[in-house]
Design a protein around this nucleic acid. Structure first.
Lengths: 217, 217, 217, 217
DNA sequence: GATGAATGAGCGTTCATTCAT
DNA sequence: AATGAATGAACGCTCATTCAT
């Protein structure tokens, strides 16, 4: 039974891998199980990826590509910094629901089990958002949208920190529980409230003119 | 080399455990290696801890106890919310230098490898800070120190998010690299700058009266 | 040396297992050693059997299947109770020579190390012979071959006891030594004598008409 | 707390050992547990017995001494062979109730785990009963109590086989279950019935004049 | 190319045994 | 003498990786 290994098959293997790595961590995840669940033999996995680490990296990249696309969509276009922020928060909420495994995997690379991947991946992943944020903050400062007395880089850093924590809070077991503890079960379920409060916090921190004022008469 | 397992020996085993678990994650860390590095036999570890998981929990608790003490010291006393925040940031910076492993371990429980511990530990650990923050924010709002138009719980949540990310940024490989990418090597090394910018951000976000103004004539 | 785990290989593993379990008991027997002696890796054993216990059970069942077949052959057909008894004794003698390990393993499940298997296996194994014996004793009583004033069940019980002890006496170290002590080395080696005396005892106990009388003039 | 290790303490250790060895088999039984249950330190056990094997042997001997005494009492005195047999059966029933562990341990030495002890112990234990039985059977034959056309040694052997199986059937898990299967729960509980049927079987097998005739007028 | 049975290093855990106190 | 903490060899079992088919 020699099947052609289509690109979709590869994608399926990666999806299974992401799900398994997200569920069990890179050490406990089992290549043989992943192969079985993907409907292929282990041999295939080892044909396409040198070893478990390489396969894990591939899963990671696959997941990140998707996440990045979501972020890109959110930031694209010329709009106010507040709109961008809102889009980002909503993108986080959406991806947490649609592909929780992707977010979990993203979190996973920050853990000790992935220490060996950390430096390379950090640069690969974070450089993009760091630059993107720096860019639109510079722009916003130029437009007078936000305060100018803050370090641009730390500014971007704090902003991304808040967003990243939100991402994890919607996807990872520990952070979700923590979210519940801090804000209650109701808040976890109330996307609009989180958006509103996040923007209020953000606007205040960044000295943005009052958000959503247009709605007033 | 028999007899005498002093309290210091136990502490040493825990320290080694913390270091190993922080370096390799709970799955890859090897009990036999930990024992050898601690200068004891495996049997000793299994005499004091029922199994690897139990030992890991013990390491975790040991680390957390120390971290908590540092936090407690920082928040103690009756002072303005800004002073408290400053103390917390400095406590984070200090503990990151003095016991990096402790912070890494704290981060570790948020990872997938620790999924089984997550719910219990989240409650155990986060409930304390959640309550502490809620308390002093309520107090600050009552005193008119901070804005009253924010949800107290999300308020505390965002604040703790920023602090937690700072903690990891000083201790965990991935986050440290990310810190570098966002803010540059120089910022990572410049504690004072981070304190200043954090407080500026915080003050603005929380609508605190201009920080450090009292120092002006 | 990959691929190809024929049915014979499985059989070989079971044979090795039977031999090792018979020699060392289920606790001391070493799966790694069994695998090595069978010329396979441990992994193979654990591919086919969930754990040591399951493998032990498989060995047991394998051994018992063979023993049962021997018994079945001996009891099959419509013949006098004495002929049946003789066949059984000879079957015991034969199997003790040909597959001593099988008998030893059968004995093993009566030992404390197998306490956990005892109830299930007892029923599985003994119910068959209990029923078979009860059936042909009932038949023999009906035909007037044997006394009718004995409890049929205890009758069968005592008969099986004698047979079982004979089985162990030919196969298990302790019992063989005991056999020697009671009856001498010469008797252990003299199959015919044992057959003759067993039948004489049996016939007398069961009130069977004098055995082998036809040989008299 | 230096206590004198009285003879009673030693006895207690042996009792605990017998119980543990009977319950778990010689391999799984745990010296540390035995020591703890006996209220002494492991050191004591190793002071009095060179190693686990030696301690097991001591337990065995202790158990056998008690069992032998029971047998001796049963056979003592000048009485008919039937009376002797009855006393033996009753002794078996009694010891099974009073000291089940002793019987279990006796059975244990016949198992593979005790292969290394088998030859020595077989001689030590069985020689005595073999001789005793041979003696009173010779005597009985001389008195004309029993048939003379049987091999005296096999005669004794079969008799002891029946008795031994009865002993195990009252004490060991597997045999007890087998007893139930062959004879029913009610028979297992009905000591008198077992005595009666055993003696009927025995008398018939050995050609003893009808038992219990004195009861006739 | 695809398969998946086989491999075997590696780790968690137990417990007989030792020996400093 | 008695203690019992400490030792570490040994074994059950897993799973990343290989390679004959």
């Amino acid at each position: 039974m020699l099947k052609k290994l289509t690109e979709e098959k590869i994608a399926e293997i990666l999806e299974t891998g992401i799900s398994e790595f997200a569920q069990n961590g890179p050490d406990k995840a089992n290549i043989n199980v992943i192969a079985r669940k993907s409907g292929v033999s282990v041999g295939v996995v080892y044909k396409y990826y040198q070893n478990k680490d390489a396969f894990f990296e591939a899963c990671l990249r696959h997941a990140l590509k998707v996440l990045e696309r979501a972020i890109d969509d959110a930031v694209r276009g010329d709009c106010s910094i507040l709109i961008r922020a809102e889009r980002l928060v909503r993108a986080v909420q959406r991806s947490a629901k649609e592909q929780p495994g992707y977010n979990v995997l993203y979190h996973e690379i920050t853990s000790g089990s992935c220490r060996r991947f950390a430096p390379a991946f950090a640069r690969e992943i974070e450089e993009i958002s760091a630059k993107a944020y720096a860019a639109f903050i510079t722009q916003a400062q130029a437009k007078g949208e936000v305060r100018r007395d803050m370090d641009r880089r730390l500014f971007a850093f704090f902003f991304d920190n808040l967003l990243m924590m939100l991402q994890f809070s919607y996807s990872c077991d520990y952070y979700r529980e923590r979210f519940r503890i801090f804000c209650g079960e109701d808040t976890l379920a109330d996307d609009e409230k989180v958006v509103a409060e996040f923007l209020r916090f953000f606007a205040s921190a960044f000295g943005v003119e009052r958000p959503r004022t247009p709605r007033r008469p």
